[in-house]
Amino acid sequence: MAKIVKHTPNPTEPLSFLKEFTQARIALGSTGSSIPTKPSLEFKLAHAHARDAVYSVMDTEALADELEQFHLPVLQLHSRATSREQYLQRPDLGRLLDELSVNRLADQLENDGIVLILGDGLSATAINQNALDLLKLLMPKLQSAKLKLAPLCLVEQARVAIADGIAAELGASLSVILIGERPGLSAADSMGAYLTYMPRPGLTDDSRNCISNIRPEGLPVAQAADKLFYLIQESLSRKLSGVALKDNEGLLPNE
């Protein structure tokens, strides 16, 4: 019987002790010059999660049911991008509402309140998993502050700027769109929130404020709700959003 040789530390992984200093994929070891099987497949799995998130679909029926708890009309909308493939190639179409959606919004009464929008963006998974948790904390704050609210909107194949068109159709004075961020290898469920004062088509990113990386292992929803509520109040009282709003704040934690 062959003698059992005790496992010795892999001499090609002398850096293992440095893993505490960075999340980077260091100390993977080598087989020949190549990455060993285990870390090679771990990488593939992370990429698979990201890819699945890009092609995930917003669970609009379940979300619409849940949104009823806030006692506001819920509108289901769609951008002009008709498929995920087209959405990825034509960001311009993801910023525009399709005709049906425009008509649906035109049927609504004018409302100069705040419009809250849920959009799939590059990860519907992020919205499916995080959006309601955030709204459950944010809505009571808005309602107890007696802020006027427009209908809640769910929009598929959406880019951030589609919020401008929705808000303009409703006549809303402020928009907040919760949207799935581009999945990374470490997180595929990251949600962003973009706030715009007096939104209208043609605005660019410097007119917006963004809260990024909202997810349980990133920025928790409780903190995100506090930040958003603060930004909404400041934006309404100072009548602006974007770079100017950021410059003068002192109360936002972690920024």
Binding site: A24, I26, L28, F43, L185, S186
Partner: peptide, 11 residues
């Protein structure tokens, strides 16, 4: 390291 840029989020 491992193709994964954890700052710029790309491979």
């Amino acid at each position: 390291p491992g193709s994964d840029d954890i700052m710029l989020n790309y491979q």
